[in-house]
Design a protein around this nucleic acid. Structure first.
Lengths: 226, 226
DNA sequence: TAGTGTGAATGCCTTCACAGCT
DNA sequence: AGCTGTGAAGGCATTCACACTA
């Protein structure tokens, strides 16, 4: 995937202690792939095999891993369990991160029910929505709070990571309020870019955009014929 | 935001007729931003203003647009409606693309209900799932078909774009079957990389990975204190 | 021998700066 | 005067090739 790469201003993404952005984006992939290998009782893996499991080239994998230090054994490969632990500590998967979801529509509900959530060190601690019909209902044991209580909820849970799954026109206001309460990482599912102060990280996931990119390639395939 | 960018092998992404990958990934963003401006009755926009609305730098916007040809007026700016049409034809948003969703769990359901779907030229034509409890139920007027009928469904609808929203362990098999029926673009929500033949485009969207990347940055912020 | 770790080279993307229209 | 379009420069990221090690 090309999960594109839109730096954009004000996302507060600095040097990152020598680890390139592109590498950071792949570390979770390696972590996941190692988990699958571990589940398959693989104890040692070569860069070639792990690269294939992660869907990247072997040289890229080795270069990425070299940013974290040297955890492989020449002539042998990498100890699966050990490497996974190392990556986990680097990407923070070893800690528990409380997460707040704002917007409990279809998408927000799906995210709240997302199983891989807890598995990766994230704990859903709060759901927030403006609709009276939703306030008070529960998903995964979490009761939906009123949007007006957003500030209180964030303060009480101490969450620094939030998911914005609201309609586009509410996203910026919600973001401002989240940031004001100390949230410094936001996963944005609204189809509008968010403006945030320096030091706050935003990642955007836009279904429509992803489909549009695929459509572009399809379009090209059609045009090629003519 | 930093939407990642993992090319990976076997995604069949070639030169793309002179339009760089990174630009392709941003065109939908511009298209969307122009839509918002148009809705706000803006008729002409400068590169600076449009860039801000899209969350990119002005020079990058101009360079991107120059790939499509020259549609601006020097000293004035871009005609919003005209530019949007031009981008639409380039990215294929002017055509109607039938889309099949495989896997109707929480996520698949949310995707099926996604409003921006039709708005961007995509038509949901089929839903496929293996669970007997779901087969026969309807979402957005589309009845869920059995997974065993996958081939028939794809053939009947003529879809070339598919969304894979299955658990990770089913994703590759489903993909193989989709590709075998002529699907050439896949949006993958499963947390495993898909192997596809040359000429098939895959984009991966992984919630867990996105969160992990945010966690990495949070981790860094914590470490910086020490 | 098999496979990691890494400088060097290549290619892609972004930013800069300014020429050229309107 | 204002703003687009674009060559040129600079910065990242990926790939290559090989020294090095178990």
């Amino acid at each position: 995937m090309i999960s594109g790469l839109l730096p954009g201003p004000g996302t507060g993404t600095k040097p990152a202690r020598g680890v390139p952005q592109a590498t950071v984006a792949r570390l979770p992939v390696y972590h996941e792939a190692l988990g699958r290998l571990f589940a398959g009782h693989v104890e040692v893996v070569s860069s070639t095999a792990l690269a294939e499991a992660a869907g990247v080239s072997p040289s890229q994998l080795r270069k990425d891993l070299s940013c974290l230090g040297t955890y492989g054994t020449r002539g042998v490969g990498y100890d699966v369990a050990r490497l996974q632990r190392q990556i986990a500590t680097h990407i923070g998967a070893a800690s528990e991160w409380p997460v707040v979801i704002v917007g409990v529509g279809h998408l927000g509900t799906a995210l709240a029910n997302y199983a891989g959530f807890a598995a990766r060190g994230f704990t859903l601690v709060a759901l927030v929505d403006p609709a009276p019909a939703r306030i008070g209902t529960s998903i995964q044991g979490i009761t939906v709070s009123a949007l007006t209580d957003l500030e209180e909820v964030v303060r009480n849970t101490g969450a620094v990571i939030a998911v914005v799954a609201t309609p586009a026109d509410a996203a910026q206001e919600v973001t401002d309020r989240l940031v004001h309460q100390g949230v410094t990482s936001i996963l944005n599912f609204a189809s509008t870019p968010l403006v945030v102060p320096e030091g706050v990280n935003v990642r955007k996931v836009d279904l429509g955009q992803e489909l549009a990119i695929l459509a572009f390639h399809e379009q090209r395939k059609v045009e090629e014929v003519s």
